Simulated scan of single mutants.
Amino acid sequence: MIKIEKGQKVLVKLKVNGKLYEEYTESRKLLSDFIREDLGLTGTHVGCEHGVCGACTVLVNGRAVRSCLMLAIQADGTEVNTIEGLASEEGWHPLQEEFSKCHALQCGFCTPGILMSAVEFLETNRNPTEEEIKEMLSGHICRCTGYHGIVKAIRQAADRIKNTVNKVN
């Protein structure tokens, strides 16, 4: 085990949204703060700072994690995807498009975390039921209570993604 002295900065190397970063950071800095403060990617929101609200959710090696519960040094050597990396050169991700069409974003504070969780969810469940979508959303708090539009948007995005995959095959 490496001993880190108090106040000593540690080199963290990780890929964020496809771009390699090498940054020195405090050993106790949260991944959410590292993303926002050190990398300047402010789309990842910090709400409760206890992992309850889900606003800070990002993908680490393809898995949805609460970045307010993970230290930046724990992400060393990983691939992180944030809301800023969800769209591609071709345009918005189907989830983003459906959130817009279904009025699933009200104030927008919870939206980045929900979208990132939904990305992982739809990777593993191409044809989710409404109940499965609601279960996935149970880890997210939307203070505007826009859940009806969110569920509808995820359902429609799932259909679009499934149809795109079927056309390719």
Rank of each mutant, 00 (worst) to 15 (best):
I2Q: 15
E5H: 13
G7I: 07
K9W: 04
K13I: 00
L14N: 01
N17I: 03
K19M: 04
K19N: 12
E26G: 08
S27P: 08
R28H: 09
L30E: 02
F34H: 03
E37A: 03
G43E: 03
H45S: 09
V46Y: 07
C48V: 08
C48H: 11
E49W: 00
H50R: 14
H50F: 10
V52E: 14
L59N: 04
V60T: 05
A64M: 09
S67N: 01
C68Y: 00
I73V: 15
A75E: 03
D76F: 02
D76H: 15
D76Y: 09
N81D: 15
N81C: 07
N81Q: 15
T82D: 08
Q96V: 07
E97H: 07
E98P: 06
F99P: 01
F99M: 07
S100K: 14
C102W: 03
H103I: 04
A104N: 06
L105K: 05
C107Q: 13
G108V: 12
G108S: 14
P112R: 02
G113C: 04
G113Y: 00
E120K: 05
N125H: 12
R126A: 15
T129S: 14
E131S: 15
E131M: 13
M136K: 06
M136E: 05
L137D: 11
S138H: 11
C142S: 10
R143A: 13
C144F: 10
T145A: 15
T145Q: 09
G146W: 03
G149H: 05
I150H: 03
V151L: 06
V151N: 02
K152P: 02
A153V: 03
A158C: 05
R160C: 08
R160I: 09
N163I: 09
V168R: 15
